[in-house]
Amino acid sequence: MNSAPVSSRVLEAAIAWKLTLDAGSGTPEQHSAFSRWHAASEEHARAWQQLGALDQRVGAAAGPARQALLQSRAGLRRRIGKAGSSLAGMLLLGGLLAWLAGPSLAPSYWLADQRTATGELRTLRLADGTLLSLNS
């Protein structure tokens, strides 16, 4: 059979037939219409043959590439799982340390403009003249 390139119109028709027939939903009428299309011209048969050869080359190349992709996805999932476990452990440890340290690690403690120590009483006069009493 001639291996000359086929016209884009015939190649598009061959691709459409390939998609229809590979989907598995082709009716008997569609199969008989394809058979008529295929037999109608030597160019149709050549387009179908070239499309099949391309499909085989892509399928052969996809085997190792697909396997590598699946392995990289599995490795990525494992790394994400390990990172998530590590992060959860660090958060748990940080929370435990903050609880043990008490209020001195609370954000409100560090954001306060004035503080008193445990058992300390302090009286402050604000800029507007208000008298403020602080207790521990």
Score class of each variant (00 low, 15 high):
84 G>A: 13
115 R>V: 02
127 A>C: 00
34 F>M: 00
85 S>H: 12
65 A>R: 07
69 L>D: 06
116 T>H: 04
44 H>A: 08
48 W>M: 10
88 A>K: 14
41 S>N: 08
48 W>F: 13
89 G>L: 14
62 A>R: 11
40 A>D: 14
34 F>C: 02
91 L>C: 10
124 L>A: 04
58 V>T: 02
67 Q>M: 06
122 R>Q: 05
104 S>K: 12
48 W>T: 06
98 A>Q: 13
72 S>N: 05
114 Q>L: 14
76 L>C: 03
103 P>L: 02
87 L>M: 14
52 G>N: 09
90 M>C: 12
69 L>Y: 13
95 G>L: 07
53 A>I: 04
61 A>R: 03
95 G>T: 11
35 S>Y: 08
116 T>W: 03
127 A>F: 05
37 W>V: 01
37 W>K: 00
96 L>E: 15
43 E>D: 12
98 A>V: 05
48 W>S: 09
61 A>V: 00
85 S>K: 14
70 L>E: 12
36 R>E: 15
64 P>T: 00
117 A>Q: 10
40 A>M: 01
80 I>P: 00
116 T>M: 01
120 E>F: 01
33 A>G: 03
63 G>H: 06
96 L>H: 11
68 A>K: 03
61 A>G: 07
73 R>E: 13
66 R>K: 06
40 A>F: 04
43 E>M: 06
85 S>G: 12
37 W>E: 06
88 A>P: 05
84 G>T: 15
55 D>V: 05
59 G>F: 01
43 E>S: 09
45 A>Y: 02
70 L>H: 08
92 L>V: 11
108 S>P: 00
36 R>I: 09
94 G>L: 15
121 L>T: 12
101 A>C: 08
36 R>A: 15
111 L>W: 11
51 L>Y: 10
102 G>D: 08
99 W>E: 15
73 R>Q: 14
45 A>T: 03
94 G>R: 13
84 G>R: 15
92 L>Q: 15
96 L>S: 13
86 S>L: 14
113 D>T: 06
127 A>Q: 04
52 G>F: 06
63 G>C: 05
110 W>G: 15
36 R>V: 05
62 A>I: 02
38 H>W: 11
42 E>L: 13
100 L>F: 15
101 A>Y: 10
89 G>I: 03
56 Q>S: 05
99 W>Y: 15
106 A>T: 05
33 A>L: 09
96 L>K: 07
103 P>H: 08
42 E>T: 06
85 S>L: 12
83 A>K: 11
73 R>I: 06
128 D>Y: 06
48 W>I: 07
122 R>A: 10
102 G>C: 02
58 V>G: 04
62 A>G: 00
87 L>P: 01
52 G>D: 06
90 M>L: 15
49 Q>N: 09
127 A>L: 06
60 A>Y: 02
57 R>Y: 07
77 R>T: 11
45 A>C: 04
113 D>F: 03
67 Q>I: 05
72 S>K: 12
118 T>Q: 02
117 A>T: 09
66 R>L: 14
55 D>I: 04
120 E>A: 03
119 G>D: 03
52 G>A: 11
88 A>Y: 08
58 V>Q: 10
36 R>M: 08
74 A>N: 01
69 L>G: 08
81 G>E: 07
69 L>Q: 11
58 V>S: 03
127 A>I: 11
57 R>K: 09
114 Q>C: 12
45 A>G: 05
82 K>V: 14
126 L>P: 00
120 E>Q: 07
83 A>L: 15
63 G>Q: 10
125 R>T: 15
